[in-house]
């Protein structure tokens, strides 16, 4: 498991029912491309986040497939509809099989 992986998300605390909100996400991850060499000339194995998803109350918002050309500490910004109060669930999938999750509640009002 990659060390020091820490997800962070920005979601408003509340929204009007049916409102579109902006979500921003960051996860600290070096996104080793698999194309760099170490000082001995050996290829450093690829180790990246390869998929990111955001769901709200079990319904999908975005589903992103990532290649090694995504920068260190992958960042995403997108817009979500908030039909009702509930919880956003964010999931990042690592090449090494690790899955990182975080969630944020949002109220209506």
């Amino acid at each position: 498991m990659a060390s020091g992986v820490k997800p962070r998300v920005k979601v408003p605390k509340s929204a009007a029912a049916g409102e579109a909100i902006t979500i921003k996400t960051l996860i600290s991850h070096k996104m080793e491309s698999g194309q760099r060499k170490d000082s001995d000339g050996n290829i450093i194995p690829r180790s990246i986040i390869n998929r990111f998803t955001c769901d709200f109350n079990g319904e999908n918002v975005v589903d992103v497939e990532l290649a090694p050309a995504i920068s260190t500490n992958p960042y995403f910004e997108f817009e979500a509809l908030v039909p009702e109060a509930g919880e956003f669930k964010f999931t990042w999938y690592d090449d090494d099989g690790s899955v990182y999750e975080t969630s944020k509640k949002i109220a209506i009002g």
Binding site: V61, L66, A80
Partner: peptide, 9 residues
């Protein structure tokens, strides 16, 4: 990257 937009996008 490939972005797929779900129902709540």
């Amino acid at each position: 990257a490939t972005f797929k937009f779900g129902k709540l996008a």
